[in-house]
């Protein structure tokens, strides 16, 4: 499910799987304000993210959990009370 990763000084981050790069490889163009929201009945966008689980630093890919029910919970931040 999850690969263990080494802890270094760089702060790792994840992101969508297969999404095109939004770095500086394209000329700047006027961005249209578009608030994407996923829809029920559609595939959950796949992603990779670093994390922590029971004493280990890990990397998790959503699609590794295919075949199981997943509850994916976002929250504002650690130590945010509720």
């Amino acid at each position: 499910m999850a690969d263990e990763t080494e802890a270094g000084c760089a702060r790792p981050t994840g992101g969508p799987v297969g999404a095109e790069s939004t770095q500086n490889d394209k000329p700047a163009k006027p961005t249209r304000e578009e608030r994407a929201m996923v829809m029920v009945g559609q595939k959950a966008p796949d992603f990779i993210a670093p994390g922590y689980q029971k004493g280990k630093f890990i990397t998790v890919k959503l699609s590794d959990y295919l075949g199981k029910w997943i509850v994916l919970c976002f929250y504002p931040g650690d130590f945010t009370f509720v």
């Binding site: 029920v40 009945g41 595939k43 295919l66 075949g67 029910w69 509850v71 919970c73 976002f74 929250y75």
Partner: peptide, 16 residues
């Protein structure tokens, strides 16, 4: 920051 979002994803990877 993220809002408190909770998604149920079925074994086929579909958001229910």
């Amino acid at each position: 920051v993220e809002n408190r979002g909770r998604f149920l994803i079925d074994p086929d990877g579909v958001i229910q």
